[in-house]
């Protein structure tokens, strides 16, 4: 029982981070239908930006803010300079995806070239162990869970109650009509890429205070973020949150029965079963 509770707690911590990753990719995919493979690069880029600012002796919080800012800009730039010209040429989904992959691999290699392959820790965040009965976790874990949920709630509030949020929802549900009433969907796309990149930057920050950054951390994060979205259901941001929690908890609890190496296998199995039984995802609407 103690082990179960401990693993469940771990699952919730991981799940919160996964949910954040899921919404960060989901908001982009749901609105623009771009298989944004370069999201993984933005994740790595955010980590290293924050690190670079701390190396320049900027204090942690300002470094974080500056790093998030540059990551957001990077995300907007990818949309504006890479995807948008392809959309204008009405390129196929597949070619936009291949471009995204090119950005991912080139960007990640560039970081490797500049900073080398070594792992880089982000220091300065207070880490203490907290024990509640048999369950233990650290202040970093607690902070991660709190921040993830604050950010997710803020995102939903933003989408639900602001003009820009309304426009994003409008473009994602009926792009043609949005054009007709005078919404500039290109600007909305750039905005959405900015938001998604900001969110993934926060997730990158949270994982970097826990685990040091390496040039290839982006791939795993990317993988989780889109598996989460397809698991939860395309078109429903709530689905990505649910998908993230489920993955996090499943991945953690499976340790009770299987060795850790099978973690990926379990995630894959869940995805496979969901696509087999309900291809539109847990909360998704039926695919026509």
């Amino acid at each position: 029982m103690g082990l179960f509770l401990q693993l469940l707690t771990r699952g919730i911590i991981t799940g919160s981070l996964y949910a954040l990753l899921g919404v960060s990719w989901g908001i982009i995919y749901n609105t623009t239908r771009t298989f944004h493979f370069a999201h993984g690069f933005i994740y790595t880029f955010a980590s290293y930006s924050i690190l670079v600012f701390t190396w320049m002796s900027v204090p942690l919080i300002p470094s974080l803010l500056l790093g998030l800012f540059t990551a957001t800009l990077a995300g907007c730039a990818v949309e504006y300079f890479a995807y948008l010209p392809m959309r204008k040429k009405s390129a196929s989904q597949l070619s936009i995806f291949l471009t995204a992959m090119g950005i991912m691999i080139a960007g990640q290699s560039l970081i490797h070239l500049v900073f080398g392959p070594d792992s880089r820790p982000l220091e300065g965040f207070p880490e203490h162990v907290i024990s509640l009965g048999t369950v233990t976790f650290t202040t970093v874990d607690l902070f991660t869970v709190l921040l993830c949920w604050i950010v997710i709630v803020c995102l939903f509030a933003f989408l639900g109650h602001t003009k820009a949020g309304m426009m994003i929802r409008a473009v994602s549900s009926n792009p043609e009509k949005a054009t007709f009433i005078g919404i500039d969907s290109r600007r909305i796309f750039v905005l959405v890429f900015g938001i998604g990149s900001l969110l993934v930057g926060i997730a990158a920050f949270l994982s970097t205070i826990d685990k040091p950054a390496t040039p290839n951390i982006g791939l795993g994060a990317l993988l989780i973020s889109f598996i989460t979205v397809f698991l939860g259901g395309v078109g429903r941001l709530g689905g990505a949150v649910l998908g993230g929690i489920i993955l996090g908890i499943a991945e953690s609890l499976v340790i009770m029965v299987l060795p850790t190496e099978y973690k990926m296998m379990v995630i894959f199995l869940i995805l496979f079963l969901v696509v087999l039984i309900k291809p539109e995802g847990l909360l998704g609407k039926k695919i026509a």
Partner: peptide
């Protein structure tokens, strides 16, 4: 816009 409320649909037409 199916997933916006009636009021939001109207507001959006003006905001846009």
């Amino acid at each position: 816009f199916p997933n916006l409320s009636v009021l939001e649909n109207l507001q959006l037409a003006a905001y846009a």
